[in-house]
Each structure stands twice: as C-alpha cells, then as structure tokens.
Amino acid sequence: MSEDPVIELRGASKRFRSGSGGVHTAVRDLTMTVARGEFVAVVGPTGCGKSTTLSLVSGLEPPSDGEALVAGRPVDGIPDGIGYMFQNDAVLPWRSVLDNVAAGPRYRGEAKAAAREKARDWVARVGLGGFESYYPHQLSGGMRKRVALAQTLVNEPSILLMDEPFSALDVQTRALMQDELLRLWSGSNAAVIFVTHDLEEAIALADRVLVMTAGPATVKASFDVPLARPRDVEEIRLTAEFLEIYREIWESLKEEVEETRARGAGRVA
C-alpha cells in the first residue's frame, strides 16, 4: 500500500495563536499515509486535533512545520479531487436540496441543466428522491447529512475527508448512513480519512484505524482491520473478530481518553 500514497503527512505540525496570547499546538509531528482506495479511520479523544489534521490535508490550513502531500505534490491551496464533509452542517439554507447538490458541478463550470441532472441522480442515490425541492430547514438531521453527502460525492472525489459526519445522528440513523456510505464508496476507489470519536464506527467502516494521542495530536498506533467486505455494520459489530479488534484498539485509545479526562478534571479543579 505504501508505495503509492495519495495522502501523506510528513512530520506535520499546526500551531494556533491561543486566546490568551500564547501558542497552542493542535497537531505535532504527525506522519501518516493513506493509499489509493484505502479507508482509514482516525480516532482520538475530543479536542486532540483530528479536525485540524483534516484541514491540513484539505489545504484549508497550511502546516506550521513539516509537509502535507496529496498525490505526491505539496498541498498549496485546495488540491484537486478533494471532498470534505465538515463536522458541522454546511448545506446552504437558502438553496433547495437539488441546488445544494448541484453546487459543486456549477462551481466547476458545468451548465445549469447538466449540473442539475447530475444532482438529481445523486439525490436519488443517497435516498432523497422526492425531496429535491425541499429547503434544509424542512429536513431532519439525518436527511441534511444525506444532502451533505450527495453534495460531496457528486464531484466524484478521489480523496474523501469526513469529520465526524454522523456523530449528531441517533443510533439507528447512524447505522443506516454508515451502510450507505460503504455502499457508495465501494468501487469508487477513493481514499478516505474518516474522523470519529466512536471506536465501533471506526472499526465497522475502515481498513485501518489510527489512534491519535491526547492533544497535541500525533499518531500513536495503527491497527489493520481485516474484516471482509462488503460489510453490514450492524451485523459485524456482533462478531467475535470485531470484538477482539475492538478490545485491542480500545486498550490503546483508553490511555489517551483517560489522559484527556485527567487534564479536563485538572482544568476544572
């Protein structure tokens, strides 16, 4: 896999000026690679720097140190073929479902009719057929996530960055969306970085799980997930294999979560 990484971070760090005038390091000396067609889940405690990691890959933020490479080239601006589902809703409230999904092709210069045709197809593929003319405020949280997913996938990204996309959804909807995601992703050959704080979700979806340290984030350990595809996320959780992998990764993740908790407790005290 490592001979042809689509995404590569080499000793990347990101520092922010913190509110009190000091410097806050969100990501430190982070090295990771993702191969073409690989689905990598990134887990770590809240606030450790997972979103920041994605912003380095997407080109929205330049690294303070080290390098971010996409398709072998240093990231400068937003690389071609990136799709990014943000942690917070980013659908346009003043556009209908159809026009939200058509946004990408329109920005990329397609004619209105062609863009809408594509969008109509993707709206149907994410299971929103019949809701084309609805506005986001008329949809449930799960449906808005589907709009965001279609909006991202309509550009046919070769790199898909997802930042806790389903964390705000109820358990049943989340499982449904996870299955849909796997279905839509299979055969696309896109490289995926899927950020989550839910280890079950990470294992159910990914080929590989990266555990991040408590902030500043760096890769603590990498675990392969040799579960067969296609997967049914609700079924797979119950298998002995899954539980074994879960236990192994949780051992590693637990220390970081406890570390983060201890710091939080220290700050409160």
Binding site: Y84, F86, D89, A90, Y107, Q151
Partner: peptide, 20 residues
C-alpha cells in the same frame, strides 16, 4: 463553515462572494 465548504466544492473567490 459555509465558505470553506464552497471552496472545497470548487468555488472561486468570486463565486464564494456571489453564492455564499
């Protein structure tokens, strides 16, 4: 968030201005 999303989707600076 909306601006970043538009940029990722391929919007130019001018398109960000007019559509966001």
């Amino acid at each position: 968030n909306l601006v970043n999303n538009a940029r990722i989707l391929g919007a130019s600076r001018f398109q960000v201005l007019t559509t966001i």
